[in-house]
Simulated scan of single mutants.
Amino acid sequence: MQKIAIVTDFDGTLMEQDVGNILMSELGVDAEPEVVEVSGLYREKKIGSLAWIETAYPMLAYKKREVDEILARVQLRDGARDFIAFCKEQSVPVTILSDGMLYYIQQILTQQHIEVERIIGNPITYLEDGQFQFGVQNENTACKWCGCCKASVVKQLKEEGWKIIYIGDGSSDYYGSGFADWVFARSSLARYLSEEGTAFYPFQTFRDVMDVLVANWNEFVNGSASRRLTGRVPAACKFPV
């Protein structure tokens, strides 16, 4: 029986744009002094995304209308819809794993008529009465670096016996991809992996991903596809003992 699953990032991966960054920029959040300060610390790797999220995202409170107007303009990455359809045809579950805001992920997927098996992100949303609800996904008591602990999610899937194809583009994906079997990477994730000599499949669109998967699907299913990773665990990731 096939036991293979897809885990894909959302911002800058499944989406053409980094939706969270667009919201912060267009609504002026990234210009607020507190956010400017934590953004600098984040770029210098002195803090993780958790501290940045706790500072920036509460500033979206009471801005649902403005947020929704921006969400109506963003786009899926080229080939993403066909990729999701391919996964459904192959009965391969897809998990969207994001360090972003659950509200905009669900809104966009609904607008685009995209359905996946699971969506995991930071539980930041607007309630039915318009009130703002803030939270983070990270329940990893041993590490509070990321808002969403992608490493914990992928690690759990591996422990359940899944072979994981991970698709991502950013720094949080570096941690999540550490527990995957194969990685498709672009942007800063590709740069990180190249610098450490880790094998991956580069991509710019999901048509690139499809080209590799369709041509080698049997090998991915049986585990023999090239560039498979073994034992790569990011040193920064820690878990309860």
Rank of each mutant, 00 (worst) to 15 (best):
L97S: 05
N21Q: 15
G40V: 04
L76G: 06
W52L: 12
I165D: 00
Q107K: 12
E128S: 09
R232F: 14
A51Y: 00
E34P: 06
S172T: 15
K64R: 15
Q133T: 07
I53P: 04
G223D: 10
E37Q: 11
V94R: 00
G161V: 01
Q106R: 13
Q156D: 13
V241C: 13
A31P: 02
W162P: 05
R118A: 13
R191G: 15
L76H: 00
V153R: 11
V183R: 00
F132G: 01
L213H: 03
V29H: 11
K63N: 08
A5S: 14
M59L: 15
G147F: 00
S188Y: 09
S39V: 09
E16K: 13
W217A: 10
F206C: 06
V233C: 10
M1G: 12
C237T: 10
L189S: 07
M210G: 03
E37C: 05
F86C: 00
E26N: 08
S194W: 06
T13D: 08
Q156A: 15
G135P: 06
V116P: 09
I84C: 01
F239E: 08
R207N: 15
Y103N: 05
D78T: 09
E139L: 14
Q131M: 08
V7Y: 00
P202H: 09
E117N: 11
D181F: 09
C237D: 10
V116E: 01
T205W: 07
D173I: 06
Q106P: 00
I6E: 00
A190M: 05
D181H: 11
D9I: 02
C87F: 01
P93F: 03
G121R: 02
Y42L: 14
A225H: 07
E89Q: 12
P123L: 03
A185Q: 02
S187N: 13
L97K: 11
A190C: 06
Q204M: 09
V212G: 01
D129Y: 01
I164T: 04
G223S: 07
P123K: 06
A142K: 05
M1P: 08
L189A: 08
A151F: 07
G170H: 03
K88Q: 13
D30H: 10
G79V: 01
R81C: 02
E195Q: 15
M210C: 03
V153G: 09
A225L: 12
L71C: 07
C148K: 04
G168I: 05
E26M: 06
A61C: 10
A190W: 00
I84F: 01
R118W: 11
D208P: 01
Q131P: 00
E54H: 13
Q204D: 15
Q111H: 07
Q137M: 11
C149S: 06
G130K: 02
G147M: 00
Q204S: 13
I22E: 09
I4A: 03
T110I: 10
P93D: 08
F206G: 02
G48C: 04
E89W: 12
P33M: 11
